[in-house]
Structure formats: structure tokens, C-alpha cells
Design a binder for these strands. Structure first.
Lengths: 158, 158
DNA sequence: TGTTTTTTGTCAATCATTTCTAATTTTTAT
DNA sequence: ATAAAAATTAGAAATGATTGACAAAAAACA
């Protein structure tokens, strides 16, 4: 009747929910949900909104899973991205950052990047869909995704 | 009376015009217009719309300026970017690409990237300015620039 | 239980980019 | 002009993020 998400009560439920989702997606492709993969997704869930980079994720995962190797974290992040559990974001700061995917279709968001302090603010932007339709017509191009970044100065830095 | 651009007749004029612009901007900051810098900008002008990466630019510049070093090209591209003569574009293909800046305020454009063949199509998008105003109000964020990428499948790949 | 497959950790390799250095060119002061 | 100072360069070495190779460990399978 309802989507799984409707029953969410607390953080624990949310983790379980996402972890189940990952398990299913992995199984579809013949992959396994290992402790390392579990720990990595855990960290990303625990730090939602943080836009952690690979090294930062590695350091945090290492606390709970000290024997893990950096290459495994790289491989796992790649896998989580393929499984569409997370998204890679490029802030032109020389490394890849990741954020947890929102599995709600309507909750599109993009980033405001402060050129002064580096803060990242998330903005919801449904208004882009108008544009997409127009572009699809004008250029005969089938749009699957988009990435939008706004650069400027945040309120604190003025 | 008119902007310099109004008198443009042909490619040669255009190169001269942009080169003069660069010379001025460099002088403002106390930099010099060296043959290497001149050759690099020349190549980018000659290949407008190509979105060349650093190695490609290096190879082309080397034809006219064989003694140039790769590091110089990197430094020069950085400088041209600072001087706002060119823009760095990141297509998530592991290297930086550059395009000549359009010095016409109204000619904003962004990129459609085909996930199948890698083609880059340029789209004009004035419509984003509405969004910017709204964001500036809602988030008290002063927007200076934005980057938009659309990913999908181009007409040839369908 | 033994065999195959997947995943892992370690370490080496890669690739784009930056830094270092001494040499060269250009500017400036004399 | 000409010597000293400053900017720029080429080439090589260093860096830093990411990937690849490989043998060992873990899990699935037969």
C-alpha cells in the first residue's frame, strides 16, 4: 500500500531501511553486503548533509572498522554510487565528495557554494524541470540528470 | 560610442581584440604578455567551441611554439582563467577543459553532455536568472556565478 | 569438506597537476 | 647603454587523488 519510507519513525529505522534497500540492489547485481560496505554506508547516513570526501569517510569508517583499507573505501563509494545510494559531487576543490541520495522524486536539490568560507548550502529546485522540457524539444536531447552549482558569498561572509 | 566588439570584421580582428583585452588585464596586475601566453590564447581562440583539455592545448601550442613546456601551459591556463579570458569546465572525465569566454553579458550558455558518445552541446540559458533572484532572497546568498550541466543521450545516439 | 567466486588489504602504478630550480628574458635604475 | 632586480620559463621532480595488481581471507556453492 505505502512505500517503505512511510513507516519511518527514527534514525535507526532509516538506517535499516536504506541498508535493506542497498542489500536488495546489491543482490540484483550479484554483489554482497559486507561489513565494510555496511560500515561505509552507515557513516554516510550518520553524516548526512556533510558532503564528506573520500579521506574523511575513510577516517570515520576506520573508527568502527580499523582494518579497512583506503582502496576498499574507494571501491565501496564507487559501488554505492552505481547502486544510486549516494551521489558524487564535485566542488572543484580537488577531491570527490559524496552525499546520501534522497529517494523521494520530488526532493531535487542543488548546491550554493560560498567562495569565501566554502560552506555548502542546499537548495531545492523544482523549477529546473521547465527548462529541461524546453531543452529536450529544442535540442532533441534526452535529459537524464543535471547538476547545478551556484557560486557566491553566503550571509555570514558579508 | 560603441564597444570595441562592434567593429569586428573577421577572425583576425577578433584575435587582436581579445589579445588586446588580455594585454590590458595582464598589465593591470603587473603581468606580461609573453609569446607563450599569446600562443596559448591563440590556440583557444582558433578552436572555439572545442572544449579542449590541457594536454590537447599543449599539443596544439607546441606546433607553433615547440620549446614550450607543459608546466607553462598549466600556468598560463590558470592565468587566463584568473584574467577571465577563459573558463575551466569540469565534465567529470578526469581532466580540466577550457573554453573561451564570451564577453557579451547576455550570452550565457551551459552544457548538454551525452553519456553515450561524450559530445558536448552548448545551450543558451537566460531562464536561470529568475531562479537566481529567488535563491538570493530565500537564502540571503549573493550569487556571482553558476554552472549547470545536463546529462543525457543526444539525438545521434538514439 | 573441498572448490569456486567475491571481496579484501597492501602496495605499487597512474595520471593530472603543482612545485622547485636554475637558466633566460624582460624591466628598471643608473 | 649597462648592470642589477624582477618576472617568466623549461624541465624535472614532487604531490595527491585515484586505480590496478595480487595474494590472502571470506562467503557461497556443490
Amino acid at each position: 500500500m505505502f512505500e517503505k519510507g512511510y513507516y519511518l519513525r527514527n534514525e535507526g529505522d532509516k538506517v535499516d531501511n536504506l541498508m535493506d534497500m542497498l542489500k536488495e540492489k546489491l543482490k540484483e547485481k550479484g554483489y554482497k553486503l559486507t561489513p565494510q560496505r555496511r560500515a561505509t554506508l552507515d557513516i554516510i547516513i550518520d553524516n548526512q548533509g556533510q558532503h564528506l570526501n573520500t579521506e574523511e569517510i575513510y577516517a570515520l569508517v576506520k573508527e568502527k572498522c580499523p582494518e579497512i583499507g583506503l582502496a576498499t573505501v574507494y571501491r565501496t563509494l564507487q559501488l554505492l554510487d552505481e547502486m544510486q545510494m549516494i551521489s558524487k559531487i564535485n566542488l572543484d576543490d580537488g577531491c570527490s565528495r559524496y552525499e546520501l541520495n534522497d529517494h523521494d522524486e520530488d526532493h531535487q536539490h542543488h548546491h550554493l557554494i560560498c567562495e569565501s568560507c566554502g560552506t555548502i548550502i542546499e537548495v531545492e529546485l523544482d523549477l529546473l524541470e521547465h527548462l529541461e522540457e524546453e531543452i529536450e524539444k529544442n535540442h532533441d536531447f534526452e535529459i537524464k540528470d543535471h547538476k547545478v552549482k551556484f557560486f557566491g558569498i553566503c550571509s555570514k561572509c558579508r
